[in-house]
Amino acid sequence: MGFLVVRPGLLTTIQDTGRMNVGKFGVASGGAMDPYSLRVANLLLGNPQSAPALEITLIGPELVAQRDYWISICGGDLSPTIDGEEIPLWRPVQILKGQSLRFGPCVSGFRGYLAVNGGFSVPSVLKGTGTDLRGKMGGFQGRALGKGDWLPVVNVEQMPRCSFRLGKEWIPHWQESPKIRVIHGAEFSSFTIQSQQDFFTDVFQVTPRSDRMGYRLQARDGSPLLRHLQEDVISSGVVTGTIQVPPDGQPIVLMADCQTVGGYPRIGVVATVDLPKMAQCKPGDYVTFEEITLEEAQDLYIHQERSLRILGMYLEREWRKPSCTQLT
């Protein structure tokens, strides 16, 4: 029981909220590029927030349900339909046995997250269920979905009906030129005063050489970010969101599948709450960086975590009730 993959889409992988305690083995934490959308998609169905869900990139798959399921789709709007009928994002939707879930044009964002009540059933590898494409492990057989795959779902009793609707404040509005808030990195002051200013005023374009490991950016005016000190940086730890500047002066934003150590100067680190905005950018989109203090970034993080916990508790209770309620 589960879903049959009729068409796999561009890059459809099982992801969760990432692995912990594997960095010292050189293994990426991985997980959803936009963890916020994956977590909300799961919470809407009463799942644990880290349950395995599908990360769908730009061109979605075609899936046929093998029985009735409650699903939810969050993140970028890839125009999902069930048997040709448009379905809403950010709320639970029922798909019946034999119905076909398809995706159309990408209207906003870049990545959609499809959760199913109970979660997809994949083995845990190194305490995670996310697909590590480089390590060829985790997720569905360590790879992106392919035509003809059977995607199993954990067998739980599916609710008869429900109609939660999230308030507007929960639903991010993906922009094509977002402002990404950034904390100064360890080597920020080793850049020239001009480059420090340019970093926060220039417009950067996401190049096609961007993937789950990192977003390679290019300043719109082409000017490189330069350092007044050219000494080498000894390879040391990097985390998702670290913005490195290699010798060509064009920044790279490290993303979910990034390596665990790096040797390029770190001009900044993206505030954790803004990683989803970055992850929803597609090649060709523009971004600007906005300075934020560490204290502000941690305040925003704590605020978001508290909200998600409250939402989680609320929805979990709702899912235990026999019928639906409205959440506004």
Partner: peptide, 21 residues
């Protein structure tokens, strides 16, 4: 505490700020 990632001259320590709200 989440994890330690040791390298040549340093150790990165990952943590959850929510524990210090």
């Amino acid at each position: 505490f989440i994890e330690c990632i040791p390298s040549y001259t340093s150790v990165s320590v990952l943590y959850d700020p929510y524990a210090y709200l």
